[in-house]
Design a protein around this nucleic acid. Structure first.
Lengths: 365, 365
DNA sequence: TATTATATTGTTACCGGTAACATATTACAG
DNA sequence: CTGTAATATGTTACCGGTAACAATATAATA
């Protein structure tokens, strides 16, 4: 009647024997079978009250917690999803991750973060890692699909063989997966129109590396918008730079020193708020007053936007909502139907003082 | 000679059968035993070259990746450590996590982030989760040890029964674990002395909730420092607030409106840069010029410090270094020696323009 | 009280790998 | 050509749980 297995052989050599209490130990001590312990653990109804209580007491006494690996192995999911994105250092991705984490948690899942360098192709190593862990699904975010990354398609296909995949990114390449993306057209249109309305004609765009798809997409949209409004689309009004404040500084310096003062733009649209932050600093350093000397609009509506001087007008792409949608879709597609569709979240322009208008919260479809 | 197990019974009901290739499938297809496949996987030498090649080809063909759970269950570690801290929304913790992630990765480990609300006690649920996953170790960061949290000690003890624990926090309560902490004395001393040197006498401190240990510690240190320099330690010069910019705004408003103008402080030390950011905004809104009207020093030396107006002087606690040390200690203590000691990283004052001095990078022991 | 239905509990075959130990090959010396 | 060492490969017992199925105890019904 007793468990056949010999009691745990503790101490594997000199190594410590941390927390080696198993379900067998509990079963033995309670004088029941492991099946009964499992039943108590899962709250199965057919356990007599006194038995349940006795087993539970022993579980509590040892603070026994069943191993996730063992459970997982047995067939049930680890209730973990993966989120692959650029380092969380960029506050945009911080927000994205945070929202995903909360949404996952609300659904009883854990969101494991995998950070990848934005400029590098997805390493095979990473895909291996994801598969090895047999996650319940993966969300990709960021400029992952940029240019024709070597083996991306294959890697994704392989991954999808193991788990559902959702991407939070511009629907660039045709990918066979659910894709949640931001409104890249609105993201360019909103600030351009806003500035146009305020009377600006020479509008410049700084930021993003054109090698990365969504930056180049944004650049194109920006140009199209300018043309649509009959504004000058001078190539000098477009300077490439990185994603950070330092890039913004450099970009402004480069653009303005290369340009005759009379041709200076009167407004700047930055790839993101970090770039805008750097741009603002450089502009002030060059003696310009903001927003009179130069209007500026950022993107992402970061926490610091209300606190810049002047407070920064910015486009909000609502990463939180995208993250939440992504997680929901991922959990829904859990059964591997391999649905393929994309959904978009509208951009919103949050008007502050950095371009001289003070219209409050303005939402443009 | 063939594998005894019947070939995988695919399709558990109507659910999808994603990536169900196991080591048995590979073994069968290669006409070898699973042991041989394992050998090929682990690079064991005693496999004939042609066998190895044949097996490897099949592994590659199926892009087979062994399950982490199964391996884990068999006894080896998941090579994962956990990092428990407040939401990554606070950029200080972002830096902390990021550095830990990189250090872990450099050692072949994965750093799993567990976010907890700073104001809540560690939920038993969380500890369960950590144990359930049988992590290789856990790092706690943030104000976890604040006040006498119910059951913290017990939870920690239980956790330590399963895995090594390292804390990145002020060594407040006596905890039986390795503790890496920042220089809380220097963190108060550096800015106070700096301001004193610049001739300030009325220095105020805003931020942090006194209920949380490291905030109150900082508050105390601040007062001690004032007294040591014979500066006024008026209680009105100390306003509690949260950890964010909004809290900073409110705190400044509250402090200054409650104070006769002649008694206004001439310098402000903020709990962190976010608080300082809010304070700066409020100060400007009240018509003060910075740094002439009010000097201000933040803490954490966040990425935006060089970009505030004026650029913000700030204390750097070097969270990255603490994170790296924590990870290293954790991996070292892997064998459960249960060492208990604490190590401190010195604080550094990074001088910018927000207090009227421009001395460059100044390090004070 | 015999009998059947029902409530409890136990037995056991996996889950996907790993590695100790057993066995089969091959290589080489005598 | 045979014996033995060295290689290469197979067998099998776990790892810690789960749950289908079997078995037993208890309650309900005839």
């Amino acid at each position: 009647m007793e468990s056949i297995r010999k009691s745990r052989t503790v101490g594997s050599g000199g190594k410590s024997v941390m927390g080696k209490i198993t379900i067998y130990d509990i079963a033995r001590e309670a004088g029941v079978s492991t099946a009964t312990v499992t039943r108590v653990l899962s709250g199965h109804p057919s356990v007599r009250a006194d038995t349940r209580e006795r087993v539970q007491r022993i579980i509590d006494a040892h603070a026994y917690t069943p191993s996730a690996s063992a459970r997982d192995l047995e067939g049930r999911s680890t209730r973990t999803i993966g989120i692959v994105m650029p380092p969380v250092i960029n506050p945009y991705f911080t927000r994205l991750y945070n929202a995903a984490y909360e949404e996952a948690q609300a659904n009883g899942y854990y969101a494991a973060l995998f950070q990848m360098n934005e400029n590098q192709p997805i390493r095979r190593e990473l895909v291996d890692e994801l598969i090895r862990r047999r996650l319940g699904g993966v969300i990709f975010a960021g400029n992952i699909w940029s240019s024709e990354r070597s083996g991306l398609k294959e890697a994704l296909e392989r991954l999808r063989n193991y788990m559902p995949v959702v991407a939070v990114c511009p629907p660039a390449t045709q990918l066979d997966c659910i894709c949640v993306h931001s409104d890249l057209v609105g993201c360019s249109r909103l600030p351009v129109r806003h500035l146009h309305t305020l009377g600006h004609r020479r509008i410049a765009f700084i930021g993003g590396s054109m090698r990365l798809s969504d930056a180049s997409r944004r650049g194109q949209n920006f140009l199209e918008e300018l043309r649509a409004l009959d504004l000058p689309d001078d190539p000098a009004y477009h300077v490439d730079c990185g994603y950070d404040a330092e890039g913004g500084e450099r970009a402004v310096l480069r653009m303005l020193t290369n340009l005759d003062r009379r041709r200076w733009p009167t407004a700047l649209i930055a790839f993101n708020d970090l770039v805008a932050l750097g741009a603002m600093k450089q502009l002030k350093q060059m003696g310009l007053r903001l927003p009179e000397g130069m209007a500026i609009i950022g993107c992402d509506n970061q926490f610091f936007c209300p606190y810049t001087d002047p407070p920064m007008t910015s486009v909000d792409l609502h990463p939180e909502e995208m993250a939440r949608s992504a997680v929901r879709e991922l959990l829904l597609s859990h059964d591997g139907d391999a649905k393929t569709f994309s959904m978009m979240r509208d951009a919103t322009l949050v008007v502050r003082e950095s371009c001289g208008a003070r219209l409050g919260y303005r939402k443009l479809g």
